[in-house]
Design a protein around this nucleic acid. Structure first.
Lengths: 146, 146
DNA sequence: CTTGACCTTACCCTCGGGGCAAGGTTCTAC
DNA sequence: GTAGAACCTTGCCCCGAGGGTAAGGTCAAG
């Protein structure tokens, strides 16, 4: 397999060209060779890395985390501990998110039922107490996403 | 309760001053009065709105959605339909996210078990095939999150 | 008078790219 | 040979919901 340009590499890896350029800029991919006219050239090795990145992204790892693993790997280091650590952290994070979402779902359902009741009784000043009276015990996590 | 400055209003509503200023700028709050020296002055009514915003945010509504509801409310319109619509949409979105997260959790668990096995067998080239061999059937949703 | 706590605006940063502009290159068809 | 399509390049601004910081104005207490 001879070197290919970014569009082809991206398509083969199931990514967008823009994403691939971003990964290079962020150091997840080694700086690609260029043709005389400046086109990036990607090798089969690069494709492997791209596939790896895609998989890791599917596991919800951040680009920084993926870079960590790739850097360790390139340094010939034992990445198992790092990888299992990452996976454990992510499992814990997922479980927190699941719990949050389930709480959120309950709160929404409560609000929804209140809305129905209010609607049957006539939609007065009660209107937006629907939300005002939703359960307050939802912790708005600082993490930004719930 | 006499008017208060942004820090106090924010603290009473459980928000940051910066968030409160943002809400004003985005039109969720009416433009606040100012002291001679330019400090914003918030009233008890503003506090009610801030509490409402906090609740709505806890239900995962976006600022735009919250603004919609508040605008309707200020216009004296029936907001019930809008609110129930929003809640229904969000319930559906939550359910999709829950399903996504559960799939992700399964994939992570699979990867985690593979990591354990690999570690017991010695951490060789297998190392990052942990992730490479994770289930690929996770749809990377275009929505950015998962 | 000074110190510290508050306030103001404004600008850059997040995360993972998407979209677009303006321009260069390469390939295909006629 | 040349037109056009289909690539590629860099660079900039955009998303959400603010956080961090700078540079400076204001207010109350000691």
């Amino acid at each position: 397999m001879q070197p290919m340009t970014v569009g082809r590499a991206a398509a083969l890896a199931g990514l967008s060209p823009k994403a691939v350029r971003l990964y290079e800029r962020r150091g997840l991919l080694p700086t690609a060779e260029r043709t005389e006219s400046g086109y990036r050239l990607f090798t089969a090795d690069d494709l492997d890395v791209l596939h790896f990145i895609r998989q890791a992204k599917a596991l919800d790892l951040t680009l920084d985390e993926i870079k960590d693993v790739l850097d360790l790997q390139r340094g010939g280091e034992q990445t198992c501990a790092r990888v299992t650590g990452l996976l454990d952290e992510h499992l814990a994070a997922i479980d927190r998110k699941l719990a949050d979402l389930r709480r959120l779902r309950r709160a929404l359902l409560t609000a929804r039922r209140a809305a129905d009741t209010a609607q049957r009784e006539g939609c007065e000043a009660v209107v937006c107490r629907i939300i005002e009276h939703a359960p307050t015990d939802i912790e708005t996590r600082p993490g930004g996403y719930i």
